[in-house]
Simulated scan of single mutants.
Amino acid sequence: MTVDVYTPLALSVLLAAISPVVGRRVAPALAAPVLTAAAAVSAAATVWSLVLLAATLLDDAPPVVAEARAAGHPIAEPVPEVIGIAACPALALIAHRLWRAVRAEYTTRRALRRLCAGQPGDSELVVAASPVPRAFAVPGSPGRILVTAGMLRALEPAERRVLLAHERAHLAHRHAFLVTAASLAFAANPLLGPVRDQVAFLVERWADERAAAAVGDRATTARALARAALTAGRAQPSCGLGFTDRAVTRRIAALQSAPPPHLRSVAAAVLALGALPALGAADATGDLLRLLAHIVP
């Protein structure tokens, strides 16, 4: 346990370091779900490792100490006591971060759904009478595309088709779920911030590629993206899956080159890396259970 319990933290740093490379080399449709899955497993393993560290304080509980001494069993220290004590406020902080992340997600979804309220059940497109250029994919049942009048006025007819194809891709491939999962993983493990950012970028790249395929013109897709970004200017970033943010310059450059390949071997390696923290946490759990069984037969 003295080593395995720390592996989720170490491997989270490694996952965060390689995520930009994976994002550049692997097709977004493959890289985004792979990184999200790896981050979710790593975050869960990290939280469980903290629980195990806090659980090592059980061998200092007076009833446990008295019973172990009466049975003639030595009390081993799997980790320094100060680390077990530090794990307790760390778990409390993680719980607070997760609560804030869930509340923010709920508030955002509720606000977007409220803007779409009153529309016919089969209406996919909702146009808001706002001069501020914005576009959102609003997940739900049914999913909707919320676009402001200011955005529609800024785009030419072909560019509007790109916009709608982009937002439809967000809905069809459940990008909101991936972004939410990566955000919750970051809330549970702040070391995974680069992975969260990379997933947010990749779902936009994924939607760009799907839009380019739908309209059959990568140049038009790049031009629509550039025009939308210029129209939006330096307004505050939107709270939904926006069409006008997420490193627009990089996205335009990617559309001006060939789509990246599906390097499944790299994706498999990332998934394996994401599974290692879970294996380390499982092994540490077994070590702790054997220790407690030895103390209190």
Rank of each mutant, 00 (worst) to 15 (best):
A135T: 08
A278N: 04
R109A: 11
L192S: 08
V132T: 11
L292D: 08
P131Q: 06
V21E: 07
L58A: 15
Q119D: 11
E77R: 02
V126E: 07
A187L: 08
L289C: 15
A272D: 06
V266H: 10
H170W: 04
P8S: 01
A29L: 14
I145D: 04
P259V: 04
A17K: 03
V79C: 01
F243V: 00
V64Y: 01
A254Q: 10
G118Q: 11
H262G: 12
A219C: 12
A226K: 09
Q198G: 00
A117F: 13
L58P: 03
L35N: 01
T249F: 13
P190Q: 09
T285I: 03
P277S: 03
D217G: 11
L191F: 09
S123E: 15
P131D: 11
A154F: 14
E204P: 04
Q198S: 13
A253S: 12
M1E: 05
L291H: 15
G280F: 02
A207P: 02
R290C: 09
G150E: 05
S141W: 13
I295V: 15
R168G: 06
R25A: 15
L91I: 04
L279D: 08
A284W: 01
A149T: 08
P297R: 10
A149F: 04
V138C: 05
D208C: 06
A269L: 10
A40S: 10
R196V: 01
V215C: 09
P297Y: 03
P157R: 02
L57S: 01
R103M: 12
V102N: 10
T2Q: 13
P157T: 00
P33R: 07
A27G: 12
V126N: 01
A269V: 08
A169M: 09
V13M: 12
L276H: 08
P277M: 03
R134V: 13
A169P: 00
V79E: 05
G286N: 01
R69Y: 12
R97G: 05
F136R: 11
A158Y: 13
P260T: 09
V65H: 06
A247P: 08
T2Y: 06
F186A: 14
W48E: 05
F243M: 04
A45H: 00
A268E: 07
V34S: 01
T36L: 02
R24T: 10
I85F: 13
V3I: 13
A38E: 00
A284Q: 02
P74L: 09
L225S: 05
L291K: 13
G216D: 04
R205M: 11
V5E: 03
R251Q: 11
A154R: 12
S12L: 05
P142S: 04
I145E: 01
L57Y: 04
G240S: 00
G280Y: 00
S141I: 08
L50G: 00
A165R: 06
L178N: 04
E81Q: 14
I85H: 07
A90C: 09
R205N: 11
F201P: 00
A37T: 12
G274F: 00
V102T: 11
